[in-house]
């Protein structure tokens, strides 16, 4: 494992911790898209079907379990917790995420590394992850204001993608048989989706002001 991949995993982990902190400390999930969170839970559940069939490392196994558990915890909290649920911006979170699931599944049936149950769901999870941030970005766009923790959550999530791209570049040059264009192209698409958000994040950071998105 190289430093970029590790930095990517860590920023991914930090993003989830920031999200849990926000929900736990403020007892509020305003600004957070339940649809994006449900998509992430689906992403991890379908990608880590290999949890019991392929062992990579203790690190991988623990991280997979953490990602599955934390994504389910966020969804459960937003749906079931009496106080948290009340702060959910339901009227702003209207992105039709079922289309993203359908599109990703069709693409996974057509473009995969092998036409097997596990490989199709692996490809599905990669495509869905690339698109899963869309309901979240649309919600932020609609509400205009972005509170600090929500902004940091999305920032770390974007940093994770950026580090993974550096990781693939590094692996491309250092490993003999590194070719995983499905993950690379999807990862690139996902990072491009963040570009707009990053722009406004850095502007607010530079001006030391609360982050605001244009209407």
């Amino acid at each position: 494992m190289n430093i970029f991949r590790f930095a990517g995993d860590m920023t991914h982990l930090i993003s989830i911790l920031v999200l849990l902190l926000k929900i736990y400390a403020t007892k509020s999930c305003s600004g957070i898209s339940l649809k994006t969170q449900e998509l992430y839970a689906l992403v991890f559940l379908t990608r880590y079907l290999d949890l019991f069939t392929d062992f990579i490392s203790v690190y991988n196994t623990i991280m997979k379990l953490v990602f599955i558990a934390s994504s389910l915890a966020v969804v459960c909290c937003m749906r079931m917790h009496r106080v948290v649920r009340r702060s959910y911006d339901k009227d702003l979170d209207t992105f039709r995420h079922y289309f993203l699931i359908l599109a990703s599944f069709v693409l996974a049936l057509l473009v995969n590394e092998k036409f097997t149950f596990q490989e199709i769901f692996w490809a599905f999870s990669i495509y869905l992850e690339a698109l899963a941030i869309l309901p979240q970005l649309v919600l932020l766009q609609r509400s205009g204001n972005v509170d600090n923790l929500t902004g940091q959550y999305v920032f770390f999530l974007g940093a994770y993608r950026a580090f993974y791209i550096l990781n693939w570049i590094y692996r491309y040059f250092t490993e003999q048989h590194f070719s995983r264009w499905i993950a690379c192209v999807s990862g690139l698409v996902q990072t491009v989706l963040y570009a707009d958000f990053f722009y406004y994040y850095f502007i607010s950071w530079k001006n030391n002001a609360k982050m605001q998105l244009p209407a």
């Binding site: 995993d9 290999d50 392929d54 990579i56 991988n60 991280m63 997979k64 590194f178 993950a183």
Partner: peptide, 10 residues
């Protein structure tokens, strides 16, 4: 022979 690509990333 080229090693098969396993999904070793998260």
């Amino acid at each position: 022979s080229p090693k098969e690509n396993v999904h070793d990333e998260l």
